[in-house]
Amino acid sequence: MQIFVKTLTGKTITLEVEPSDTIENVKAKIQDKEGIPPDQQRLIFAGKQLEDGRTLSDYNIQKDSTLHLVLR
Rank of each mutant, 00 (worst) to 15 (best):
I30Q: 00
Q31G: 06
I23Q: 04
F4G: 08
D64T: 02
D58K: 04
L15P: 00
I23W: 02
Q41S: 07
D39Q: 06
Y59E: 15
I36K: 12
I3F: 02
S20D: 10
R42Q: 15
V26E: 00
Q49D: 12
G35A: 13
Q62P: 11
K11H: 04
K48Y: 12
F4Y: 07
L43W: 02
A28Q: 15
G35V: 03
M1R: 03
T55H: 07
R54D: 08
E16Q: 11
L71M: 08
T7H: 14
Q2E: 11
K63P: 09
L8I: 08
V17Y: 10
K48Q: 09
T22H: 11
E24Y: 13
L50E: 00
E18G: 09
K27T: 15
H68G: 09
G53N: 10
R54I: 13
V5W: 01
L15T: 02
N25W: 13
R72G: 12
Y59A: 03
L69P: 00
T22L: 13
E16D: 05
F4M: 11
D21T: 08
Q40R: 03
V70W: 10
E51R: 02
T9E: 14
K33T: 11
N60Q: 15
L50K: 00
G35R: 03
D21P: 00
I3H: 00
T14Y: 14
T55I: 04
M1T: 14
G35M: 07
K6G: 09
D32T: 07
K6I: 14
K48E: 14
D64I: 02
I23Y: 02
E34T: 05
S20P: 03
Q41N: 09
Q41Y: 09
V5S: 01
D58T: 10
L50W: 01
R72P: 15
I30T: 02
V26W: 00
V17N: 03
I23S: 02
S57D: 08
I44T: 15
I44W: 13
L71F: 03
F45A: 11
I30R: 00
G53H: 12
P38Y: 09
T7G: 14
E51D: 10
T22W: 12
A28S: 11
K63S: 08
T55N: 06
L43R: 00
K11P: 12
L67K: 01
G53M: 07
K48G: 14
H68V: 02
L69S: 02
S20G: 11
K11Q: 13
K63H: 09
K48D: 14
M1I: 12
L43S: 00
I61K: 00
I30M: 03
I23E: 01
S20V: 13
G53A: 11
I36Q: 09
N60E: 11
N60G: 06
E18V: 11
N25A: 15
P19I: 13
V70S: 15
G47W: 03
I44L: 15
Q2H: 12
K29M: 08
V26H: 00
T66G: 12
K27D: 00
R54A: 12
K11W: 09
D52T: 05
P37L: 14
D52Q: 06
V5P: 00
D52P: 12
S65F: 04
T12V: 05
A46K: 02
L71N: 14
N60P: 04
D39G: 12
T12Q: 07
V26R: 00
K63M: 10
Y59W: 04
S20W: 13
Q41G: 10
L67R: 01
Q31I: 11
L67I: 10
Q40T: 10
L43A: 01
L67Y: 01
K29H: 03
P37H: 05
K11D: 13
V26N: 00
V17F: 05
D52E: 07
A28V: 07
G35K: 05
Q2L: 10
I13S: 05
I13E: 03
D58V: 07
V5L: 09
F45G: 04
F45S: 11
L71P: 03
S65A: 15
I3Y: 01
N25L: 05
R54N: 13
D58S: 15
R72N: 14
R54H: 09
R54K: 11
N60K: 14
F45V: 10
K6Y: 14
M1D: 05
I30A: 05
I44D: 12
T22D: 04
S20F: 05
T55L: 08
S65E: 12
E51M: 04
I23L: 08
P38L: 13
I3K: 00
N60D: 06
R72I: 13
K6W: 11
G35N: 13
K33W: 14
K27V: 11
K6E: 14
E34K: 01
D32I: 08
V70Q: 15
G10E: 14
K63E: 11
L15G: 00
I13R: 03
N60Y: 08
E34R: 01
D52N: 14
L15F: 13
L69I: 14
G10K: 03
